[in-house]
Amino acid sequence: MSADKERLDRAIIAMRVARELPAGSCVNLGIGIPTLVSMFVDDESVVFYHSESGVLNCGPLAEEGEEDIDLINAGGQFLQSVPGMAYFSSVDAFAMIRGGHVDVTVLGAHQVSANGDLANWMLPERGVGNIGGAMDLAAGADKVIVAMEHNDRSGNSKVVQECDFPLTGRGCVSLVVTDVAVMEPTPDGMVLREAAPGWTPAEVQEVTDARLIIPDNVAEYEV
């Protein structure tokens, strides 16, 4: 059963996403796996981090004992102070996002559909949820990458033909990186680009709700 096959860990997902960040780009990282991505971006790339908490060119997380309540990221984690930062208000933070000044955002998700719809703000059984900055990032960033586990804890595929959870944005996702595969949503459907080591395309399809378009040249997931 492919469902029991070994999957990649969260750090590997983050490493794979890090390869997608062009040198000199401005990047916003969401909470969870996306936060880990910055650990795998090499210094040569000079990637600039934007946080909707109101800071640009922000650095790594603060060391224990060095936390400053006035320097946080969007997930409420404490940041180190680094040279070249700029502080700004929430309205400017989102002007940057909606205005197309943020090149890439990496977000977690509950579901991504074959055509790139994103659902990541509410689990229907809870009946209430937090939107935070997700809808603005989905609508505004030039490129939206989703980094997540392929299946939820009950084994349900999070890569779906159509989302049945409330949407964050329509057709906004351009790449999906999971612990099993790298996929590209397109108007024609979800294209499988890379499969995790040891996984065949057919095995990826087995754990995936979306009907995958499987080209001849599916690569091995490279990190």
Binding site: C26, F48, H50, V55, L56, N57, S81, G84, M85, A86, Y87, F88, D92, M96, H101, V102
Partner: peptide
């Protein structure tokens, strides 16, 4: 000083 930046470099 990051408090005194008027136009952040992103622009």
């Amino acid at each position: 000083d990051p408090e005194q930046v008027i136009t952040p470099g992103i622009f």
